[in-house]
Amino acid sequence: MPQPTSLISSDPAPKDNAHRSLATFMSDYGIVVAFIVLCAVLSVVSPYFLGVNNLLNVLRQVSINGVLAIGMTFVILTRGIDLSVGSVMAFAAMVAASFAGTSAGYPLILPILLGLGAGLALGCVNGVMVARFAIPPFVMTLGMLSMARGLTYIYSDGMPISSLSSSFLWLGQGMVAGIPVPVLLFAMVFALAWFTLRYTAFGRYVYAVGGNPAASRLSGIDVRRITFAVYAISGILCGLAGLMIAARTSAALPQAGVAYELDAIAAVVIGGTSLAGGKGRIVGTLFGVLIIGVINNGLDLLGVSSFYQQLVKGAIIVVAVMLDRSRLSNA
C-alpha cells in the first residue's frame, strides 16, 4: 500500500495528476465510453441506428426496465436484491387496468393511484419481512415473485384486461413536445433518484447501510427503516412500470413482465453497482439500461435472432463485471 504522507489541505495535491485523472476518468466514465463506442459501432453497421425515430424507439423500449432498474439500484445498494419486480409490476398493471376500462368511466387518477398503491403495498410487504423479520432478501423476494404472480392470476382470473380508456393509454403511447410519455416518466424518476442519492440524508443512509450495517446502526442510523424504505421504493416504481406497460401494450396481461427482474439486475450490475452493497451510482444504472436497450435494438436492426440476443446480453453482463473487477484490482 502506498502510504500518504501529506496532511490534508484544501489545495488539491499536484502530484500524479495526469495519471490519476485518466484513471479516475475511466473509473467514473468507463461505462459512458463503452456506451459511446457501442453506439458508434452500431451507427456504422446500420444506417438506421442514428435516426431520431429509432433513438426515440430505443428510449421508449428501455423506459420500463429503466424504472425497475432504478428501484433495484436502491435495493442493491443496501446489499439486498428484489427478484419480485416483474411480478409486482404485472400485479400493479392488472389492478390499474381493472379501473381504466373505457366502459368503467373512472377518472384517470384512480387507476394511477391504485396501480402505484398495489406496487407500494407489495413492496412494503417485502420491506417489512426483510427489515423487521430478517428474512434474507433473496428468499423473501423470490417468494414474492411467485406470490405476486399468483395474485395477478387470481385477480384477473387468468384473463387479460384490454379496451383501456384513451386517457390511460396516453401514459404509454402519448407524446409531449415530441417525446414519448414513458421516456419522460423514466427521465423524471431518474432525476429524482439521482438527486435523492446524491444530495439527501436518506441517500447517504442508503450507502452507509449497504457499506456497513453494524457501523451504521451504532452511528444512530435506523437501519431497519432504511431497509424497509428501499423495498417500498422498489415497489412503488414497480407500480409505475405497471402503469406504463399496460398503457403501452393497451392491455394488462397476467403473464406480463416474466423475467424482467433479470434485465433490471443486469442494468444495475453493468452500471457498476456492487452486489456487495454500499458502492454504485444511479448514473451507472442509466447507462446500464441504455446499453442493454441499444444492444437489443442493434441486434434487431442487424436481423440477429432473439435467441442470439439472449446469449450476447448475458455475455456482456459477465464481461462488464469482469472489466470492473480488473479495474478495481489495478487501482
Binding site: 444530495y199 439527501t200 436518506f202 441517500g203 447517504r204 450507502y207 456497513n212 457501523a215 446502526r217 451504532l218
Partner: peptide, 28 residues
C-alpha cells in the same frame, strides 16, 4: 466490523453519525 464503512471515503465516515446536522433542510 462496527466502526467504519471501509469502502467509503474519510468524509463519508466522519459525517456518518451526524448526517442530519450536516444536511441543511435534509440536503447534503
Amino acid at each position: 466490523g462496527s466502526g467504519l464503512v471501509m469502502d467509503a471515503s474519510i468524509k463519508r465516515n466522519v459525517t456518518l453519525a451526524s448526517i442530519p446536522e450536516v444536511a441543511r433542510s435534509g440536503l447534503i
